[in-house]
């Protein structure tokens, strides 16, 4: 790790002010320090978010609000989250390890960077890490990488489980800019596709801080489910995952949301599946037909074509489980 200084702000204002001068935020640090140890990230100055009052978890009749510094484990175990937004709890419990979940934060989880081995090793070329240097993954070891939303410059997959769960719930992120102004951004607008600038991963302005994530309550959220498929039974990133939320009172699908992880360059919503089910009778065949549509436009690389099949099956299984 290269040397850095650590600034301890006494409030949001001083935190964003420090960022305006070029500081970088550190939340749980579980990804940033890995990247720093690999020399992939070389911050000069870190701003410690731990002292800030951003850890609260609040559930009302209408919404769930997660402070950006709420720990993954605390959110996963929160009774209201478990009862009313189960897909959030399940996605968190399928992430990382108990120790890392005790450290990792909600805001940081959304901004974690790809596990692509080419990105995380400065001995390789990588357009995301060193723009213009090339993407050896496209012809290389790409079993774990994305099949949706990729470009000729980058096929990295987004690693977050939580983000997949949150985008089906129409979550939004609360942001605070360096000048103190705040805004709310739909989570679906936070992550960018790689295109020809894979190093630009989000739509955040320089120094802009995620302060909270808010999630509306819904009937569908209460019947939501997260399924993660992986080689190892635990503590591994997703090969493919599926998040679904369904409201199907009286046998008709009123509300349906479906997204997938492990396959997309960003958390990947599957409108093609949703549209095929919305307003239709909830039957096993309807689920199967809809799931078969998942992954429109997929562009597999040399080693991950199987993810197309696996994606459809994971979506179907998640739909079946959520509606059982």
């Amino acid at each position: 790790m290269q040397a850095f200084t650590l600034t301890t702000p006494d409030g949001l204002e001083s935190a964003t002010a420090a960022a305006a001068q070029g500081g970088r935020y550190i939340g749980g640090g579980t990804d940033l320090l890995q990247l720093a140890k690999n020399d992939v990230e070389t911050p000069d100055r870190l701003i410690d978010l731990e002292p800030l009052p951003l850890t609260e978890i609040t559930a009302t009749d209408d919404a769930l609000r997660l402070g950006a510094m709420a720990r993954m484990s605390d959110v996963a175990a929160h009774p209201a989250v478990v009862a009313r937004w189960p897909v959030i709890s399940q996605s968190l419990l399928a992430s990382a390890s108990p120790q890392v979940r005790n450290m990792g934060t909600i805001g940081g989880n959304l901004l974690q960077r790809t596990r692509c081995g080419y990105f995380r090793d400065t001995g390789f070329a990588c357009n995301k890490r060193a723009p213009g240097s090339g993407c050896p993954a496209i012809q290389g070891e790409n079993r774990m990488l994305a099949i949706l939303g990729t470009s000729d410059h980058c096929i990295a997959s987004h690693p977050s489980d939580l983000a997949v769960a949150l985008i089906i719930l129409d979550a939004s992120v609360e942001l605070r800019a360096t000048d103190g102004t705040t805004r709310t951004l739909p989570l679906s607008d936070l992550h960018r596709l790689p295109g020809d600038t894979p190093h630009v991963e989000t739509t955040l302005a320089p120094g802009e801080l995620i302060t909270a994530v808010s999630v509306p309550a819904s009937r569908a959220a209460m019947r939501s489910h997260y399924l993660k498929v992986r080689d190892r039974a635990s503590f591994e990133f997703a090969l493919v995952s599926a998040a679904v939320a369904v409201d199907a009172g009286a046998g008709t699908v009123h509300d349906i949301r479906v997204a997938a992880g492990g396959v997309g360059a960003k958390p990947w919503r599957l409108p093609e599946v949703e549209e095929a089910l919305r307003g239709r009778p909830l039957t096993p065949k309807a689920l199967a037909d809809a799931a078969a549509l998942a992954g429109q436009g997929a562009k597999p690389a040399s080693q991950n074509g199987f993810k197309q099949v696996l994606l459809r099956r994971a979506v179907l299984r998640a739909l079946q489980t959520a509606t059982a």
Binding site: G117, Q139, G140, R232, S234, E236
Partner: peptide, 19 residues
């Protein structure tokens, strides 16, 4: 990596051993 002969998963998150 076939092109460079460099190991892509030189860590024990991606070199997956039983847990």
């Amino acid at each position: 990596d076939g092109e460079t002969g460099r190991i892509v998963n030189a860590n024990i998150a991606e070199y997956v051993v039983p847990v």
